[in-house]
């Protein structure tokens, strides 16, 4: 579904964020990407929808090259890829509904979306998306009036409204409290399992990776250093393996616990 072929990224300031990444992600997987801050996790995610352009190599999405796509082709790729962010990035001065409907802009002619005219069909998609994350009752609220967890659910609904094939989540729970964290991760997992939407999430907490992911990919200093199917590995082995990603052993008391 997604394939990285010898992908490298060097930023203008000379930072080598990713070095020769080869990675193939299959349909329906829930992939957690782990690694220290600055290891290149965010860069990896943003290469998939070309929010960042690679320096070398090629990223393939569903048989099409993302790397060479521009204009209308790029928009066609992007609208199939939902993305949520650490800072939620919903438009706070708009209503929840407008935010979710904005997930449909790439499916409608620009003159209509500029005027805010969306077909009834799209509104139904938006309502269903909001219902999916149990926040339909806030549909007419201003987005800024919602709590952090609610805002992230609106962000998920916006991504769902795209009817995406894959969902990218860049530190989706890093600014949420532990309880809201579990809620948001549960929604992501539910969407992954029920709709078969391939999900790729950057996570800081290894125990979240352990609990939700079917596959864990580790990045260290821009290199892919770890890649494992969670079904093939014991919990104990996983914790010992983390040394490969973080550069030193992780003790059991350093993770959040298993509840």
């Amino acid at each position: 579904m997604i394939e990285f072929k010898n992908v490298s990224k060097t930023y203008d300031n000379g930072v080598k964020a990713l070095k020769n990444i080869n990675l193939a992600i299959n349909e329906g997987e829930f992939v957690a990407i782990i690694g220290l801050s600055g290891a290149g996790k965010s860069t990896l995610l943003r290469l998939i929808n070309k929010l960042i352009e690679s320096t070398n190599g090629e990223v393939i999405f569903d048989g099409n090259s993302v790397t060479t796509a521009t204009g209308r082709d790029l928009i066609n790729i992007r609208r199939q890829i939902g993305m949520i962010f650490q800072g939620f990035n919903i438009v706070k001065r708009m209503s929840v509904l407008s935010n979710v409907l904005s997930g449909r802009v790439a499916y409608n002619p620009t003159w209509k979306t500029i005027l805010g005219l969306f077909p009834e069909e799209d509104k139904q998609i938006a309502y269903r998306a909001l219902k999916r994350v149990d926040i339909l009752e806030k549909v007419h609220n201003r987005a800024s009036d919602l709590s952090g967890g609610q805002q992230q659910r609106v962000a998920i609904a916006r991504a769902l409204a795209q009817e995406p094939k894959i969902m990218l989540a860049d530190e989706p729970v890093a600014s949420l409290d532990p309880i809201t964290t579990v809620q948001v991760m549960d929604y992501l997992k539910k969407i992954n399992v029920e709709d078969g939407i391939t999900t790729i999430a950057n996570l800081h907490h290894v125990d979240l990776a352990l609990k939700y992911a079917t596959r864990v990919v580790g990045i260290k200093e821009g290199k892919l250093v770890y890649d494992v199917q969670m079904a093939d590995i014991s919990k104990e082995k996983f914790y010992t393996d983390l040394e490969l990603v973080y550069g030193r052993p992780i003790h059991r008391d350093e993770v959040l616990g298993d509840e």
């Binding site: 928009i75 066609n76 992007r78 609208r79 939902g82 993305m83 990035n89 802009v105 916006r158 991504a159």
Partner: peptide, 11 residues
């Protein structure tokens, strides 16, 4: 976020 969901400049 808007770029990521396929919005063009006008959107």
């Amino acid at each position: 976020a808007l770029m990521s969901l396929g919005a063009n400049k006008m959107n």
